[in-house]
Design a protein around this nucleic acid. Structure first.
Lengths: 264, 264
DNA sequence: CGACTTGTTGATGTACATCAAGGTACGTGG
DNA sequence: CCACGTACCTTGATGTACATCAACAAGTCG
């Protein structure tokens, strides 16, 4: 029952290890202690450790969840990047959001029959695996954790709101600046940046599919952005040269508290 | 403390009555018995009746919630339509989603300090008012209701996903058809339609701001849609003449179960 | 065996011509 | 006055085509 290979990536380097040994206990989770995570009680940590059914290694490019299927699992990200997306029958793709360490994957599926979107790994990833059916247990016995789940869902909603505003009402230059700044800030929050630089595992095609633009136009827009000297993006290395200028171009409105995260 | 007028609409016909008499007990809620609502236990209904602090009448055009503020209340809609939106400093507006009877307003605010969007009434409305601070009580004592709240949040997320895909990757004609069909189906679900017709409380400007298009282009696109004989929209009355054709134009993918709703 | 070609592929960069969408202006009708 | 309708011109975005460059695999030769 557990370990259905519908969710196993197509060539995971170490293969699926769902529902087997738990290597990293939550107490030693690399994300513990980060300011994005709230403090949990020992009781909560114990429950979550027990909730967790194992870990999963996923290779870059592999599909973690597939639109139209129904996974028995729920994941949190220990390391690596992924993105959520939908496709139309004719192949047009819209990237909905990105998923970074400390975030959930597959919560929507816990609440509806079929996944309405797919999730693909951008880099090699390490995931924590949770059996979906135990989620109810969490709601009945750990209301604080249940609230955290709701909190995460609401936060995802806020990001989607911003993305929708971005795609619908900003110019291509603003959009592009906004997206890069947004991703940088999320990564910075969890300590993935060094100074004002970061390794972005995304291509221009991802940017295009996130912002609803063509690849060609995305390329031109990125060139224009680079010409402003606000950022430098070359060979996967993204660097912010002038934070104020980037904020200015993006029309960025500081989006408040991102802290208080649920269990990992 | 309760009844702050920051949340009182600018000219509500009957004024704010939050935290006062409860007129419609949940047992007699007009929405009870609709298939979109799950069955609740007597205990749950009693709790919700007590959770509810009153009702609020809102006039069309009034702001229910305002971006940047923090309301002490949470609402559910008994009757009437509203829309969620964000604005940029220069006035550009993006409508994020619409809110219909049986849905929540202001959940995001329960989870973050400041409202990241505004909500405006499209028609005269009747709202149920709940004090935000009692939400925690719901989580500790009524896990099934807590799960319902999460369910609602996830459903909102699904709609946002679709909207984002719509704005980002569909043509203007597809977008327009999709939006109208989407709204019609949501209204149909709660019995707001007669045959294949409905009173839409929205203008072309709303459509434009939802789909990220200019007013002029929205007008042209609606004309083109009308020319297809799939729909007829005149004087607020929207009618579907050919459901299959509309599905076809919209590239609509039947989006599964919308049922199981939380308390009202 | 190692070094040097060759071919392939994916990501990026750029130049057109074309088209979809925007903006302004000015109608109408209620 | 506001919502809708339509004409005109402008601009932003697309699609196609093609060039560059690095990474990588296969094969060849010294």
């Amino acid at each position: 029952m557990s370990g259905q290979n519908e969710t196993r990536p197509t060539g995971a380097r170490k293969g699926a290890v769902a529902a087997t040994g738990r290597k990293v206990p939550c107490e030693k989770c690399p994300l513990r202690g980060k300011p994005v995570l709230r403090d949990f009680t020992a009781d909560e940590l114990a429950f979550v450790s027990n909730f967790k059914s194992g870990e999963l290694n996923v290779e870059a490019g592999a599909n973690i969840l597939l639109q139209g299927t129904n996974s028995a699992h729920l994941y949190t990200i220990l390391s690596g990047w992924a993105f959520r997306y939908k496709t139309l029958p004719d192949g047009r793709r819209q990237i909905l959001n990105y998923s970074l360490p400390g975030e959930f994957i597959g919560l929507q599926g816990s609440v509806s029959d079929e996944m309405q979107h797919s999730v693909e790994a951008l880099s090699d990833m390490l995931l924590c695996v949770f059996p979906r059916e135990k989620l109810w247990n969490l709601y009945t016995n750990y209301p604080a954790l249940a609230f955290d789940v709701t909190w995460l869902a609401a936060r995802e909603e806020q990001i989607l709101d911003e993305n929708l505003m971005n795609v619908g009402r900003r110019t291509s230059l603003e959009r592009t600046a906004y997206l890069l700044l947004h991703l940088f800030l999320r990564a910075e929050e969890i300590g993935l940046t060094k100074a004002d630089a970061i390794q972005f595992p995304i291509t221009q095609q991802h940017v295009a599919d996130t912002l609803g633009m063509s690849l060609v136009h995305t390329n031109k827009t990125l060139k224009k952005l680079a010409a402003s000297k606000a950022v430098l993006w070359k060979d996967k290395l993204f660097e912010i040269l002038d934070r104020d200028a980037l904020h200015e171009i993006a029309g960025f409105e500081p989006t408040q508290q991102r802290h208080r995260r649920p269990f990992i």
